[in-house]
């Protein structure tokens, strides 16, 4: 029970960081934390269905459901590529506007 509560709390803190941070790098890191917390929520809920890892070495085991785990490996790989893409856009934006602050960026964009 405490795992589910803490995973949801981490999701809330990461959403707060996305909404309030002025640094672009920090926003991207908060997106990654949000994704890791969602994966933790899936893994924790799938972990309550059994008592052993889903590798059948003998017949007496009660393994957990392996389907959410397989989905979450895909989610990790997708998040890595999304991070690489957003960092590439960050470098482009930095060389064009010369700043990594959201507020300076938005005021610069409106003045043109």
């Amino acid at each position: 029970m405490i795992d589910v509560i803490i995973a949801i709390a981490v999701i809330g803190v990461a959403l707060y960081g996305i909404a309030t941070s002025k640094n672009i790098i920090k926003t991207i890191i908060c997106f990654n934390i949000l994704q890791a917390a969602v994966i933790l929520l899936f893994i924790v809920i799938a972990g309550t269905t059994g008592y052993d890892i889903p590798i059948l070495t003998s017949e007496n085991l009660v393994p957990v459901d392996p389907l959410p785990q397989a989905l979450m490996i895909t989610a990790i790989v997708i998040s890595a590529s999304v991070t690489a893409l957003s960092l590439m856009f960050f470098v482009k934006i930095f060389h064009y506007y010369g700043t990594s602050n959201w507020e300076t960026l938005i005021s610069k964009d409106e003045s043109q």
Binding site: D3, I39, G47, Y51, I53, P54, P63, Q69, I73, I76
Partner: peptide
Amino acid sequence: FFNHAPDV
């Protein structure tokens, strides 16, 4: 790992 998902 503690939640029985070593591959993840």
